[in-house]
Amino acid sequence: MRIVICVKEVLDPDAVNNYAIAGRLEIGDDGMSLTQTAIPRLMNGFDEQALEAALRIKDTGVDCSLTVVSIGEDPSKILKHCAALGADSVVAIKTDAGALDGHGVATLLLAQIEAGGGADLILCGRQASDDDQGVVPALIAERLGMPLVTFARAVEASGSSLKVTRVVPDGDEVVEVVCPAVVTVSNELGEPRYPTAAAKIKARKVKPQVTSPADLGVADGDLAPRIQMIRQFVPTVQGNCEFIDGGSPAEQADKLIARLREESLLS
């Protein structure tokens, strides 16, 4: 079974949150990018879980190859991490075609998947924690004519079919689908594993295969974005909290419940 895992490098969302919470998140003079240069770049959390889902399939003894693909400025660090965890090959796609939108990313990913001999299962994160769009997996699925299963918390492979437990609004739903298919993974899959020290040392020597749109036969025109960021801003929150202070916890509790009843927020 050929499994391709698509991983994106993003700014650490916790660090972005901390700046936002401290009221110090700022947009630069270009009106688009965050000014905080100290924010580390990491593998998108849901993509770590997508790789974990692939590793768990491998753990069950299914004969499979794991290829990790990433498009970004310099994903070699995260790709080495993937290699240390057990990816059989890691591929970086470098482009200077300017900002890509979801269609552009999907175009390159599927060109790489085709160049690599295709895939029986394409695993993605449910969304990237920077743009929160969650469109790339759907665009890949539709363009390859594959079914899409979103929000997986468990993925089991048996023969040429998959059994996926999905997190849906009503609880967990179990679905079956015939490969090839695209599956997006959610945080409910659980904590991804860490590489062993020995694997990490070994992975230091791994050189990701680097490829480009030209290598993949993709012309710049095919990457023309359908949406273009023109501005980014930090929304403001208008705080007006009425603090219930003074007194013991019992008095504060009584006061809060009384205020909520006065405001008809409680009956």
Binding site: L11, P13, V16, N17, Y19, A20, L25, I27, L34, S129, D130, D131, D132, Q133, R226, I227, Q228, M229, I230, R231, Q232, F233, V234, P235
Partner: peptide, 24 residues
């Protein structure tokens, strides 16, 4: 069309410009 969407879980908003024909 200028379409504003939430990003970074709501920490920021991004305005995307969509130009040309087609049905966004």
């Amino acid at each position: 069309f200028d379409i504003t969407a939430s990003a970074y879980g709501g920490d920021t908003r991004v305005v995307y410009r969509v130009a040309g024909a087609g049905t966004p």
